[in-house]
């Protein structure tokens, strides 16, 4: 039908519903300042989140150096220790995602009462969760470096 309308009205823009929606989004995101501000805000929040998780994991690692040294002394490889740290990073990701997602979804019915729409498709939640996992694992990299250099001989020191 779209093709037929274009044929009959060659001097008009004819778009499907999906094309019009994409064009509208593109206008607001690319042609106004909203898009840049939104991306900047997301970037800064991710950066702060990575720093907070990195600091938390690093602090925990430093508090448990002797345990990691013991793991190495009894035969644990760096990979075994990375697995422990990765598990901690993934737990941080789960907690962080839950703390963000639950209030966000709770806002949906509240926002609808003032006749606005907060649109959060499952794909968005999925990609945010995946991104959270990746960022938390990246944050654990600082701790990975620290534990790689742990000397197992420290277990013999009081």
């Amino acid at each position: 039908m779209c093709g037929e309308i274009r044929r009959r009205l060659p001097h008009n823009d004819v778009r499907t519903r999906a094309e019009w929606a994409a064009r509208s989004r593109s206008y607001w995101v690319d042609s106004t300042g909203i898009g840049f501000n939104m991306y900047l805000a997301v970037f800064l929040r991710c950066l702060v989140g990575v720093v907070v998780v990195a600091q938390t994991l690093y602090s925990s690692t430093m508090n448990h150096l002797k345990e990691y040294g013991t793991m190495k002394a009894i035969g644990g490889s760096n990979a075994d220790i990375y697995a422990v740290l990765a598990r901690q990073a993934v737990i941080s990701a789960w907690v962080g995602f839950a703390l963000g997602a639950i209030p966000s979804y709770a806002l949906v019915p509240l926002v609808e009462r003032v006749e606005l729409k907060l649109y959060m498709p499952p794909m968005l939640a999925g990609s945010v969760f995946a991104g959270t996992i990746v960022l938390c694992l990246a944050a654990a990299a600082v701790s990975f470096r620290k534990v790689a250099g742990i000397d197992p001989a420290l277990v013999f020191r009081a």
Binding site: K66, E67, T70, K72, A73, I74, G75, G76, S77, V155
Partner: peptide, 20 residues
Amino acid sequence: LPAIRRRAIGFVFQQYNLFP
């Protein structure tokens, strides 16, 4: 060295060094 420790050596430490 870690592989040899893993396979053939058990340690008991003065401070026990159990995982708390």
